[in-house]
């Protein structure tokens, strides 16, 4: 049996609600994003309707049974956009309700571990990106940060920068997913945003970029240059938006 959800977080929780209600056997059911699922001839398919109320019930049950931290882990894992996320979540929860309250600590269990791995990949890139995101100052003092993360991190970036850069107007733009967070100095809005064709930088922006490049070049100890380690710590896929790697 294959259950299809609409790709939203509420959608996947609605799917869980239906599957638990229908007492789906753990090995014979899948929960898939409807746009990414490829029909197989012998698949029996159920289209899940997203029900905010039912999704809420699933969420509260998870929080009550396993705690806030477990729910956070599921939220992060969802952002991994892993093709199998729905099925991983279903199996993980099936197992967790058997194991009881501390279940998410049990990383020796393969189903618990599978979800943990999705979570961990997102958490790691998210932490990394808090450092690697680069803002440039546009005319009129708006700070603009384009990025291209592997996972869907935009929502995870926002709380950090609304605190840290709270006296500054900024935009964080996920180029690949064509969406952005806009902060006006008081509050944040999310919206769709296509890649910008032209940008006019502030008068001093170029100078500070030059200074950062100069600093980056000179802070390395020549006698210890290690390109392999350098790429390992800061993979090439992130260089596109790093001022210090553009020359």
């Amino acid at each position: 049996m294959v259950y299809l959800y609409d790709g939203t977080f509420e959608g996947v929780l609605s799917g869980i609600y239906v599957m638990f209600h229908q007492k789906c056997p753990v090995d014979a059911a899948r929960l898939m994003h409807k746009d990414r699922y490829q029909y197989g001839i012998f698949d029996e398919v159920v289209l899940v309707e997203t029900q905010v109320e039912e999704a809420g019930k699933v969420a509260s049950s998870i929080i009550e049974t396993f705690g806030q931290e477990a729910f956070r882990r599921i939220g992060y894992a969802y952002l991994s956009e892993d093709e199998a996320f729905g099925t991983i979540l279903f199996k993980c929860l099936k197992r967790a309700y058997k194991l009881g309250g501390m279940a998410f600590e049990n990383l020796s269990d393969p189903d618990i571990l599978a979800l943990y791995k999705c979570f961990n990949a997102v958490a790691r890139e998210s932490h990394r990106m808090l450092g690697l995101l680069r803002f440039m100052e546009l005319e009129k003092g708006v700070y603009y940060a384009p990025f291209d993360p592997t996972y869907d991190l935009l929502g995870l970036m926002v709380p950090h920068f609304t605190e840290r850069l709270n006296d500054q107007v900024w935009v964080i733009h996920d180029i690949k997913r064509r969406k952005a967070a806009f902060y006006n100095g008081h509050e944040v809005h999310f919206g769709e945003l296509d890649p910008l064709d032209t940008m006019s930088l502030s008068a001093r922006e170029h100078d500070y970029q030059k200074m950062w490049q100069g600093y980056f070049e000179h802070i390395a100890i020549d006698a210890r240059k290690n390109p392999k380690l350098h790429r390992q710590m800061m993979p090439k896929k992130y260089w596109k938006y790093l001022v210090e790697k553009l020359h």
Binding site: R164, N166, D167, I219, A220, K225, N226
Partner: peptide, 20 residues
């Protein structure tokens, strides 16, 4: 509010120099 910045207890790396 109104001040620039904060400090995160775990620390954040912003880049890696060419010596790693």
């Amino acid at each position: 509010k109104g001040m620039l910045g904060n400090a995160a207890p775990p620390g954040i790396c912003h880049s890696f120099s060419e010596d790693g």
